[in-house]
Computed example of a mutant assay.
Amino acid sequence: MPQRDFVSKLHKKTTRNYLERVCEHDKIECGTIAKQYGKDYWDGDRRYGYGGYRYDGRWEVVAQDMIDHYGLKPGMSILDIGCGKAHLLYEFKKLIPDLNVCGVDISEWGLQDAKEEVREFLTLAPAQDLPFDDNQFDLVYSLATFHNFKIMDLQKAIQELNRVAKNPAQSYIMLESYRNEAERVNMMYWQLTCESFYSVDEWEWVYKHFGYVGDYSFIFFE
């Protein structure tokens, strides 16, 4: 269960005003609206989430790194749990047209407004009850999703990930976390949807306790 970082280079490109999110807006209202995962979360005011999720091609480098690391080839299958608007799946499909891609999310708005090229491969479904067969996918991954689950749902989501993977070690989870007090406070200020608010060592304990054996990484609010 090694750490493998594919995403932090994108995360670090964004400038964030942590105090503004707390001091200039009603954080309770913002979090309540964000957790509906609707239009406001994806394409509304920045206080509610992404603030307009306009794609600029940034996920191509992540897709290529994952293709190289996991040895993805035409005819293989991948699953994105919490795919949102499916920008990463779009890049996988662009780089390997014969790759079988699937994505699930609980956001109707996100799926309806996903990249048109991969929209047909997306399904409205929760991570805790995936509509797929056992051992179906060559690679299963989830980015910035599992920290949105309470502990009992987190356990179910990890069990489902393991179930649908041909090899549970061939999987990847990226989450928000913290390593020190400054990052903990910044994360507390910035996050809108987080339910499992854990440090790196706590996440590593959770993974071991729930039987996750794949790769993992974190993004930090420095």
Rank of each mutant, 00 (worst) to 15 (best):
V118N: 03
V7K: 01
W109N: 04
D153A: 07
I158A: 05
K85L: 10
G49W: 12
H147I: 02
Q170H: 11
K156A: 13
F146A: 00
E108N: 14
W59R: 08
L143W: 06
W203P: 02
V61P: 02
W109E: 14
L175C: 05
K73M: 14
I158Q: 00
D68P: 04
Q3Y: 08
V62W: 06
L139F: 10
D26Y: 00
E181Y: 09
P131Q: 14
H69A: 13
D153M: 07
W203G: 01
K13T: 12
A63F: 08
S196V: 01
G38A: 01
W59H: 15
D43Q: 07
G49N: 10
D80C: 03
I151F: 04
E183T: 09
A63E: 14
N162I: 04
E117A: 15
K166C: 06
R54G: 01
K27L: 12
D68R: 15
L19C: 00
D133I: 14
I158R: 02
L79C: 04
Y90S: 13
F137T: 07
P126I: 09
T145L: 07
I106E: 13
S142Y: 10
V140S: 09
E108F: 11
L88I: 12
P131V: 15
I219M: 04
Q136R: 10
A165I: 03
I173W: 00
E222F: 05
R16H: 08
H69D: 14
G82W: 01
